[in-house]
Design a protein around this nucleic acid. Structure first.
Lengths: 227, 227
DNA sequence: TAAAATTTTTAGGCAAAGCTAAATAATTTT
DNA sequence: AAAATTATTTAGCTTTGCCTAAAAATTTTA
């Protein structure tokens, strides 16, 4: 339907709209996409003709509803593929982006829906970013960091921030990955480090670490609490 | 490394070299790729410069070892993705081609190797076509049709010919799919139809049907025979 | 508020990959 | 063996998406 290049522009505009109050300018886009401003201008004219963006010479650009919904569809694909790569194909979180950039442009409604289903309709990708559903709606609950919880809570790891490879290796060593169960045993007051239980063993996590681990409340553990 | 278009040419040349004794001509290629002969000539010159093909004006084209190995890499990806789509994502055999045409161009060594591993290193795709290994070597044993076997043999379905959708539905109804076990109970002499056992039930298959089902000898059943 | 600085757009090019029409080479027919 | 037919290549044009350099608009600053 649209070219890879056009899709990349839509995605970039979407991300820039999200991450800043002001509108999206030609120069911001050119930096994001690593192209020259002149090329951006040209493309914006083309996208405006296709009614994917509102573009006013010299005054920046915004997505139309059509453009936004297309951007969300690409982001959905990107994040589902990232999830697949980490969950099924043993990729690390810092390796998935490049490949997902390619996979997100594959055109097939059925492919996306079946992949989503195969993966168990995940709500967050391995970086903790929300995955829009087929209708382009983002999950309501926002991502929460392990550092936000208290002693006694049991949580399921649902994502990790882009982090140094040493952090990554640390998690790997302790076999902390997507869907790993973690329960908080104690919290040191002075540095907010946590002693957590993972499977059979107890591990000490610094505040830096707990801020970079995204989690969800464990539904099963709620049941146990009641019993 | 190479563009999608270049890869499609390499693949097309490979297939035409396989399927006919004579060399590959500009017109054959232009028909295969649905482009004009003039465009083919242009591309062949480009591929020759990159040492992917041997090209002699007016006398057709052939792949160099480099070109052949690249073609096999693409075919490997194509068939692995087809296998994935059918096995994991509920695609039917007649739906996979279009999507695999896109997926085969994704560039990532790790992706291909991990996918291969995830799928259990299959030797044949859902159409019964052989999948080259990472070194570009095709599986030795060639595909065999159910119709070639005799009473008492137990076999594993490994592929199905491109067939009518009614054949497809028939197989679906009887839950005959990839890796389904089939054992031959009896063969009618006059029309070579087979009575086969699939799980709990017995099914009658016409010769047309048995010729379109590709199978492999079941290793486990060999063991049972010896016991 | 006018000059300076910055940002954006326009104009003109380039490469990839397709096209049509015309020219040329190869093959077949007479 | 020449003519006719068919296949292939060349030449010139189109679109996409990028580039540089120059021009124009906007914003900042003095």
């Amino acid at each position: 339907m649209y070219s890879q290049s056009e899709e990349n522009y839509l995605k970039a505009i979407y991300h820039l709209e999200e991450s800043s109050e002001k509108g999206v300018s030609t120069s911001k886009l050119s930096e994001e996409l690593q192209t020259k401003a002149a090329s951006v201008t040209e493309m914006l004219k083309r996208l405006a003709e296709k009614k994917l963006v509102n573009y006013q010479k010299y005054y920046g650009v915004s997505l139309t509803p059509e453009g936004k919904s297309w951007a969300l569809a690409i982001i959905r694909k990107h994040r589902l593929w990232e999830y697949f790569l980490v969950e099924c194909l043993n990729f690390n979180w810092d390796e998935v982006h490049e490949v997902a950039e390619q996979l997100e442009h594959i055109q097939s409604k059925k492919l996306v829906e079946e992949l989503d289903c195969f993966l168990g309709r995940p709500s967050f990708d391995p970086h903790g970013d929300p995955i829009p559903n087929a209708a382009g709606v983002l999950p309501e609950f926002k991502k929460r960091r392990l550092s936000e919880f208290k002693v006694g809570d049991t949580l399921i790891c649902k994502g990790f921030s882009d982090a140094s490879s040493s952090f990554l290796q640390f998690l790997d060593q302790h076999k902390i990955g997507l869907d790993t169960l973690v329960s908080i045993k104690s919290i040191q007051e002075f540095d907010e480090s946590m002693l957590v239980k993972v499977r059979k063993s107890e591990i000490m996590l610094s505040k830096t670490a707990t801020q970079n681990i995204f989690v969800e409340k464990n539904k099963e553990s709620k049941i146990k609490e009641k019993v």
